[in-house]
Simulated scan of single mutants.
Amino acid sequence: MQSQPNNRLHGIKLEQIVTQLVEHYGWRELASIININCFKTDPSVKSSLKFLRKTPWARDKVEALYLDTFC
């Protein structure tokens, strides 16, 4: 296993990222910051993870918000 010193998200799972953002912002504010339907219509961590794993541009936005908020 190689170390990734330049990857600030190394070791943090996507589920942790989404959960922390929801706890911090709530679904409504999160949807206003990142305009994606999985945060707007019947949001859940499970449905968000499914969408974010298939959609790289949305995942990039969520990861960037996480870094801006918590790092």
Rank of each mutant, 00 (worst) to 15 (best):
41 T>R: 15
10 H>Q: 13
56 P>N: 02
52 L>K: 09
22 V>F: 04
31 A>P: 09
38 C>P: 11
14 L>Y: 03
28 R>S: 11
34 I>V: 15
15 E>S: 09
25 Y>K: 04
17 I>W: 07
66 Y>K: 06
28 R>Y: 03
56 P>R: 08
49 L>M: 12
20 Q>Y: 03
58 A>E: 12
15 E>N: 10
29 E>S: 06
23 E>Q: 15
36 I>S: 01
56 P>G: 04
8 R>E: 12
42 D>E: 11
52 L>I: 08
71 C>G: 13
25 Y>M: 04
31 A>R: 06
23 E>H: 12
69 T>S: 05
58 A>G: 11
6 N>L: 05
57 W>I: 12
41 T>D: 13
6 N>V: 03
5 P>W: 07
45 V>G: 04
8 R>N: 02
10 H>L: 06
21 L>E: 12
18 V>Q: 05
3 S>Q: 14
26 G>D: 08
8 R>K: 13
14 L>A: 04
44 S>Y: 07
9 L>D: 11
61 K>M: 06
26 G>N: 09
5 P>M: 03
44 S>C: 05
55 T>F: 00
3 S>A: 04
14 L>T: 09
51 F>P: 00
68 D>T: 13
5 P>Y: 04
20 Q>W: 03
29 E>D: 12
13 K>A: 04
10 H>W: 11
33 I>L: 15
63 E>S: 01
54 K>L: 00
36 I>V: 15
26 G>V: 06
11 G>S: 07
64 A>I: 10
18 V>L: 13
21 L>N: 09
42 D>V: 02
43 P>R: 07
43 P>H: 09
30 L>V: 09
53 R>K: 14
34 I>P: 12
50 K>P: 00
68 D>I: 01
35 N>M: 06
66 Y>R: 07
48 S>I: 06
4 Q>R: 10
29 E>C: 01
18 V>T: 09
62 V>G: 05
12 I>G: 07
65 L>P: 03
11 G>C: 06
61 K>N: 02
